[in-house]
Nucleic acid binder design. Structure first.
Lengths: 213, 213
DNA sequence: TAGATTGTTAATCGATTAACAATC
DNA sequence: TAGATTGTTAATCGATTAACAATC
């Protein structure tokens, strides 16, 4: 579908934001928007919006702008929110539980089918209908249910080994919350890293800087 | 302290990653590392490492490389992990609870002093020693305890109004998990946005793309 | 001293912005 | 048709990489 391939990461990273803003406009009942109007709302240039969208096709109409609902739908399509991916969460600690619930209630495109942990004490607990299974059952579960995405909510030390195992079990993508750093192509699978501590340190930097200035 | 000012966001965003890698090296008992060795471990160029570090000062030594412990310490200093900022969490849902625990156990530089929610049913619950207070007590709490950072774990609709209130109450930085988009300078305070759904959609994009390829 | 590796300047590359012809 | 706004090409800007003189 992409008009050109090798679309840069910078562009891809902006797509969800467009999707979000268009969703809000749609909810408000706004039918049409120009790149200029949208640029003001989003605090970016109209040029960038047009450039970004034209990586995927000509969604607008000269003299008119863009149809909000159509564009929202198109970007959703590009992001794949309509194709539901079977997903599992590894690690049912605080973060694992929160992320599990996030996937269940807030993310189209992902269907949570299993939660795993190595602590016996946690196993058997039910998180919104899904039982926490022992990590020893991971292989059997994967062979049977064929999940495509794994969410890593485990300590740094266990991350690499677990990721390798998940590769072998047919996982295609990892959403990584562990402190281990994966490259975005690990063993041929896709990884998206979320380093919460890094994000917080960035904030810390700027707050600190202000003290000096 | 910065050798030059106006250090680009690209550089700042890489600092926590350097800090993390150096922390691991330090733990392993490695004393010295060259930009070349580090570049291989981190999958970036040695040039970039040297450029980045030299925004803040000459931490290395020709012919030798960098002292791991010193550099770790220096970057920590730049990021402000030593200056502890009093922090509060707004919203004690699943995410709010997980993030509260994250701050308590995994982040130097931030000291969690209060948790707030608007649901009466949640108020009074204790999260690792910290009671969830009703949002109506926010003002009194802030006037007395003067927290510097607020973490927003509330729905989109409440984000803007709450952020404005927090500004007035003297908050200097916001770590924003709500689906509302703040600019990085909101009303003169610093905001770091964490859009988990955006991150997940990026993963979705690449997994989807693979199906087409 | 010779070798290694930094700090820094210069060259390249890619991403953003501006401009404008095409067209609804 | 005239006005508006896109799609796209060209210009600018900034970030990354390469090169090398300085120096430990």
């Amino acid at each position: 579908m992409p008009k050109k391939d090798n679309i840069s990461l910078s562009v891809i990273k902006r797509l969800p934001r467009y999707y979000r803003f268009l969703g809000v406009l749609k909810e408000k009942g706004i039918n049409r928007i120009s790149s200029k109007e949208l640029s003001q709302k989003m605090n970016i240039t109209a040029s960038q919006i047009r450039q970004d969208l034209n990586c995927f096709g000509g969604f607008g109409q000269q003299g008119y702008g863009y149809n909000v609902e159509d564009l929202h739908q198109e970007i959703g399509q590009i992001l794949g929110v309509n194709d539901v991916l079977s997903s599992i969460v590894i690690g049912a600690g605080n973060l694992g539980r929160a992320v599990s619930l996030h996937i269940m209630f807030e993310s189209k495109g992902f269907n949570l089918t299993g939660i795993f942990d190595k602590k016996e004490a946690i196993c058997g607990k039910i998180i919104r209908g899904i039982p926490v299974r022992h990590i020893d059952q991971l292989e059997e579960f994967c062979l049977e249910r064929l999940p495509k995405v794994a969410v890593l909510c485990i300590p740094r030390d266990a991350a690499l080994e677990t990721a390798e195992q998940l590769c072998e079990l047919g996982i295609k993508g990892i959403w990584n919350f562990s402190h281990y750093d994966f490259t975005s192509h690990f063993n041929g699978i896709r990884v998206e890293n979320v380093h919460l501590s890094d994000s917080l340190m960035t904030l810390s930097y700027y707050l600190n800087e202000n003290n000096n200035a």
